[in-house]
Amino acid sequence: MALKAITANRLRDGTVVFLGANSTWVEQLADAALFEGAEADAPLAAAKAQAEGEQFGVDVYAFDVTVADGEILPVKARERIRALGPSVRTDLGKQAAA
């Protein structure tokens, strides 16, 4: 069963956010809540309703991750780049702050 995290872009500034514990949004993937496969469906629906209803976020969706040595790693390149920043400018984005 694939592990999933839930993400969105914050409406007011476009920043990539992840659904963390207690249904709050966090900016680092490391703080994201993880769900086992279909267990993501209910929180995803709730997060969508909340993000859209409160004009908080757009493009809310779940994506696949794995965990290795306690670190959350997105499966797809696209999500890796969203979680870190552009691979060609490692001085920018979340990877720079980390």
């Binding site: 872009n9 500034d13 476009g14 990539v16 757009v58 696209r78 780049i81 969203r82 920043g85 552009p86």
Partner: peptide
């Protein structure tokens, strides 16, 4: 917003 040149991309607008 698109007609004002504003996209939502991976990291930001």
């Amino acid at each position: 917003r698109l007609m004002n040149g504003l996209y939502l991309q991976l990291h930001a607008y």
